[in-house]
Design a protein around this nucleic acid. Structure first.
Lengths: 129, 129
DNA sequence: TAAAAAATACGAAGATTTTCGTAGAGAAGT
DNA sequence: ACTTCTCTACGAAAATCTTCGTATTTTTTA
């Protein structure tokens, strides 16, 4: 199994990260309420998860106040790179082309978004040397 | 949590699928040996996993011979679409553009592959309206 | 300031995934 | 035929992930 310097978030962990990416630093209560717009998760469930994530190094906690405030320890960008890199290895034998192709058909991208992607790609200069 | 018509393969399951995509229909022994080029997995572990995958509908089994022969029940393409679609939802709030961007930086794509991707994208006809 | 409300800590149950040992059936070698 | 090797079946341990209940502490409210 692949060993990562920073751990790959699990499913629920990623849900929490997504909420924090959107809200910015937030309390357990805020995260739990955002969570419950979709499914229903007990407050202490969310709390426990966030405590574990803090132990794992996925979140940082400001506990100077009674209501602790959490934020991601790793940037959205890096986490996303990690996740997509992981998927690339595990399901696409490293072929970015195939992954892009599948992404387009998985989601029926609009002509507009397709244009944006083309533009982004045209401007994209490989990795700097 | 999202309910899928065909189940999303777990980590180990995906490893097995990847091997079958590469080898074509194969026995447990063959899969296990391919597996052990990376890590070390006991033979019965691989066997059990493949039996479970068959129950789940991820694999098809030809048991007309003593040595059963397995193959994926779902195409590589569809599985990949499912996986990337799932990641799109879970980590990219549905933005294909961001996912593509991250894929490029996750893997340091060569100039050559970048060219191929641009070409594929230029030829790609979005979903017609 | 006492009762109620809200927050954290923590253990442990439940669910899922992964691994393996053992038993027994079928093939192969001598 | 008999011993050995290989295969499948299957139960269950081990590991991981998710959920929640209870106890305790702090804040708020009446």
């Amino acid at each position: 199994m692949t060993k990562h310097n920073s751990p790959i978030p699990t499913d629920r962990e990623l849900a929490i990260l997504g909420i924090l990416w959107e809200l910015g630093p937030a309390t357990v209560r805020q995260v739990n309420e955002a969570m419950n717009e979709d499914s229903t998760t007990g407050y202490t469930t969310t709390l426990k998860l966030m405590q574990i994530m803090t132990e794992k190094g996925l979140l940082l906690r400001d506990d100077s106040q009674f209501k602790h405030v959490y934020r991601p320890a790793i940037s959205e960008e890096k986490t996303q790179r990690q996740l997509v890199g992981d998927l690339l290895d595990r399901a696409f034998a490293g072929s970015a082309e195939k992954l892009v192709m599948r992404a387009l058909s998985a989601k029926k991208v609009s002509a507009e978004e397709l244009g944006k992607i083309r533009k982004m790609l045209a401007e994209y200069k490989g990795i700097e040397l």
